[in-house]
């Protein structure tokens, strides 16, 4: 197993190099970003000076190699628009997004299981029908639209939930300020409900359907029939036998799920003016703030890789058929 982990980590280095190279090239082919950082009355000399100061006068491969060299020394460069260390800004925006993603993941996975199980147990009834209709709908509706509708309905019309914003929990926690963190916690959750649901709705729907079909599959298997015939209670059959096997495909999804949810986060953070990394990186791309984009992309990739590794390890634990 250790060789597996070491091999995966070595591969990750290549993956991250590839990811930074791609984003570097993508942002550079659009032309010289210098013009974003000079005033409209700047003379040609001033423009040339700024270009030199930003390092854009160097050939591309030199710029990239210089960047890699700096990264190797832990220097991710300064954000061009904020003029502060890029990594600091990214790590500052990360906790909010992690809160949102975890919350969404909870929705997407924890709620999917009961929904899927009920739909499977009551196959063909109205329960199944309504759950599956909701799930189908959830997989067909764009998340930004859902977000705006929820703001108007739950936020404005009913006034039950906050419309936008964010109350930090992880940030004070990481700073060691436990009092603030836990005083904030109810507020944090309260502010997370709408954006969390908007981000998670698609995944929740998909997972519910996934759980349902794998549950149906498991319920048809011999060992469940055997267990039933032995007179074990239905509850025990479901929890001990069926459920344990039914959520395997969901666990597989967790790694991919994270990447998928992050995709939704870019849009939803804009709708709910949520100060996370999705909006940060979208703005950074728009501003061609290359160091900031690079730092975000590295952070996101690392999280993604580590998460997938963990998922594979967990999977190996719960499914004896898989060997690493």
């Amino acid at each position: 197993m250790w060789t597996f982990i070491v091999r995966r980590l070595l591969q990750s280095v290549i993956v991250i190099l590839g990811v930074t190279l791609i984003s570097f090239i993508a942002l550079q082919i659009g032309g010289d970003p210098t013009y974003l950082f000079v005033s409209e009355r700047a003379t040609d000399e001033e423009i040339a000076m700024v270009r030199r100061a930003l390092g854009f006068d160097q050939p591309l491969h030199i710029q990239y190699l210089t960047y890699l060299g700096n990264v190797a020394q832990g220097d991710f460069g300064n954000s061009l628009s904020y003029r502060q260390p890029a990594m600091e800004i990214v790590l500052g925006a990360l906790p909010a997004t992690i809160e949102l993603t975890i919350f969404a993941m909870l929705f997407a996975i924890v709620l999917a299981i009961p929904f899927g199980v009920f739909a499977a147990l009551y196959r063909g009834t109205a329960v199944d029908g309504s759950i599956m209709t909701m799930a189908m709908f959830g997989q067909s509706v764009p998340n930004f639209w859902l977000g705006i509708m929820m703001i108007l309905f739950f936020g404005l019309y009913l006034g039950w939930l906050p419309i936008s914003g964010h109350v930090p929990f992880l940030m004070p926690l990481l700073r060691g300020d436990f009092v603030t963190a836990f005083t904030n916690l109810p507020q944090t959750i309260y502010y997370l409900i709408l954006p969390g649901v908007a981000v998670a709705f698609y995944s929740l729907s998909r997972n519910a359907r996934l759980v349902r079909s794998s549950m149906l599959e498991v319920l048809g298997q011999d060992y469940v029939r055997t267990a039933r015939s032995k007179g074990i209670s239905e509850y025990a059959v479901i929890t001990h036998h069926a459920l344990r096997n039914a959520w395997l495909p969901v666990v597989t999804m967790i790694g991919l799920e994270f990447g998928f949810l992050l995709g939704g986060v870019v849009v939803i953070e804009t709708v709910f003016s949520y100060p996370g990394i999705g909006r940060l990186v979208f703005n950074a791309i728009n501003q061609r703030d290359i160091p900031l984009v690079q730092a975000s992309v590295i952070v996101l990739s690392v999280i993604f890789i580590v998460l997938n590794l963990v998922v594979d390890l967990v999977y190996a634990r719960i499914d004896p058929r898989v060997k690493l």
């Binding site: 290549i14 993508a26 659009g30 791309i285 728009n286 992309v297 996101l300």
Partner: peptide
């Protein structure tokens, strides 16, 4: 497969935004 890993380690929407902006 490594190319695939690179792409999957990269939220698709970011890639799409990057290329479409440019």
């Amino acid at each position: 497969m490594r190319l695939g890993d690179i792409q999957l380690a990269f939220p698709f929407i970011l890639l799409a935004i990057m290329f479409l902006v440019v």
